[in-house]
């Protein structure tokens, strides 16, 4: 029965098949090339149906450069704020450090739900292999870069009503924020609200193609940054909803952060208008110890551009309050 079958994985597959429990093809194949991202793996030529997108407020990943692609087999149900992606949707995010590909994160919606995986690039950049589910302490081509575990993927992506982050109305607005920290120039052919509507891939979408955060340039960029970097967890329906901090949208951020007491740094405020040094939100962005650091996942390096931006925003809040008092 097992003649010629040597690896533990293969033996397990044969035994499962013998029991009538054939698991079928894996949701996440052993190499990145097998996920279908590339038309030609050898030249890293991305298949034309895997289309690039570039969120206007990128997630800080300790300075790693990113490229992203999505495959949509059918239109998205965009009739509500949390877009619902069709079965067989696939999404990739490639991270590079120092100009070298380090890892490509992958998520796919199977009929049974979303699956998450990470592929780690080899030293010569010719192929990326599936990382262990528990992640890796460092990547082959970037020793300081940590590869997330499957649980960490789920921790960020399986929090809200949709697990696809960075692919939503504000992030794909055609009115891009020039002051967004680490703003990326959209890759040629990048999807945005206009192109998705033109191809009929946003079913039920009734919003503007140019949503933007109202406010001064600093406020716009600051709230956009918080939306992208903090709102994944700090939301009304997330696992830390009990904290009562909602940074998903500007109105909620203003309501739950500004002038609100912090449980963590009591008696300080989450955001103390005019007082960056007394604002716990900023202090935790600057913290390095794992008990205090925010976000707690995916970053170990302080985002200086963002902390300067947030400090400026907090400074400006005092001016805003002063003006409102005078009215």
């Amino acid at each position: 029965m097992l003649g010629g079958v040597k690896s533990p994985t293969a033996i397990a597959a044969v035994l499962a098949a013998a029991c009538g429990n054939d698991p079928g093809p894996p949701d996440v194949p052993p190499t990145l090339g097998e996920t279908g991202l590339y038309a030609d793996v050898a030249t890293r030529t991305v298949a034309p149906e895997m289309r690039p997108f570039t969120p206007q407020y990128p997630l800080w990943s300790d300075g790693a450069a990113k490229q992203r692609w999505i495959y949509l087999p059918e239109p998205i149900d965009a009739s509500r704020a949390d877009w619902q992606f069709p079965v067989h949707t696939r999404v990739w995010k490639e991270l590079s450090v120092g100009g070298r590909r380090v890892e490509t994160r992958y998520m796919v919606r199977t009929p049974a739900g979303w699956r998450y995986a990470t592929y780690v690039w080899n030293a010569d950049g010719t192929e990326a292999a599936l990382a262990p589910r528990e992640g890796l302490a460092s990547a082959e081509v970037a020793p300081a870069h940590r590869i997330p575990s499957e649980g960490e993927c789920r921790a960020c992506h399986a929090n809200g009503a949709t697990p696809v982050l960075g692919f939503a109305a504000l992030q794909l607005s055609i009115d891009r924020d020039p002051d967004a920290p680490h703003a990326e120039r959209p890759a040629p052919g990048s999807l945005d609200l206009a192109s998705l509507l033109a191809t009929g891939e946003l079913a039920g979408y009734t919003g503007s193609i140019a949503p933007r955060i109202a406010g001064s340039p600093v406020e716009r960029a600051a709230l956009g940054y918080l939306h992208a970097n903090c709102g994944g967890c700090h939301r009304a329906d997330g696992p830390v909803a009990a904290v009562g901090l909602d940074l998903t949208d500007p109105a909620a951020a203003r309501r739950t952060a500004i002038g609100r007491p912090s449980d963590f740094g009591a008696p300080k405020l989450r955001v103390a208008p005019g007082a960056p040094a007394d604002s716990v939100l900023l202090a935790r962005m600057r913290a390095l110890d794992p008990l205090s650091r925010m976000p707690p996942l995916g970053t170990r390096v302080v985002d200086d551009a963002a902390t300067h931006l947030i400090a400026s925003w907090i400074d400006q809040l005092a001016d805003n309050q002063h003006l409102e008092t005078r009215r």
Binding site: G151, E152, R154, P239, P290, L291, P296, L297
Partner: peptide
Amino acid sequence: IDTIRNGRHLGVGRP
């Protein structure tokens, strides 16, 4: 379950 699996408070927070 997420807390235990991820080794993080509520599955997403501090270790």
